[in-house]
C-alpha cells in the first residue's frame, strides 16, 4: 500500500503543480488545494501506515493497544489541514478580488505593475 500511496502522493503533487502553472486563476487555486492534500498525504504515508487501530486508549486502560497508528503525524496533519483551509479560503477570496479588480482571470494579464517595457529615461548616467 505504501507504494500505491506514494504514487498517489506523487500524482497529487504533479497535478497540483501543473495546475499552478496554468493561466487560469481558478486552476491555480484548484492546484493549491491538490498540493495541500498531497503534502498532508505525504506526511501520513512517510511516517508509516498502520491499518485500523487509531491511537486511542480504551476506557479503563492506561495505554493504547499495540500496534496502533502513530499519533504524531496525525496531529501534525490535523494542524496542517486547518492551516491549509485558512490559506485556501483566503486565496479564493483573493482570487475573487483579483478578478473583480482586473476583470480577468488570466494570470498573464496581471503584470501592469511589473511590465519592464514601461520605463523612464535613464537616470544617473547624465543622459
Amino acid at each position: 500500500m505504501e507504494l500505491l500511496l506514494a504514487l498517489t502522493v506523487g500524482i497529487l503533487y504533479a497535478s497540483g503543480l501543473y495546475l499552478l502553472l496554468r493561466r487560469s486563476l481558478v486552476k491555480v487555486i484548484v492546484g493549491l488545494a491538490l498540493l495541500t492534500n498531497g503534502a498532508n498525504l505525504l506526511i501520513f504515508t512517510a511516517a508509516g501506515l498502520v491499518r485500523g487501530r487509531p491511537p486511542l486508549v480504551e476506557a479503563g486502560e492506561s495505554v493504547p493497544q499495540a500496534p496502533f497508528a502513530d499519533p504524531v503525524p496525525q496531529a501534525l496533519i490535523l494542524t496542517a489541514i486547518v492551516i491549509g483551509f485558512g490559506l485556501q479560503a483566503f486565496a479564493m477570496a483573493l482570487a475573487y478580488r483579483v478578478y473583480r479588480e482586473s476583470g480577468s482571470e488570466d494570470v498573464d494579464s496581471l503584470r501592469t505593475t511589473e511590465d519592464p517595457s514601461i520605463n523612464l529615461p535613464k537616470v544617473g548616467t547624465g543622459e
Binding site: 486511542l56 486508549v57 476506557a59 490535523l78
Partner: peptide, 8 residues
Amino acid sequence: HNEPGGGF
C-alpha cells in the same frame, strides 16, 4: 479528549 472529536 477521549474519543475522536475535539474543539476543531
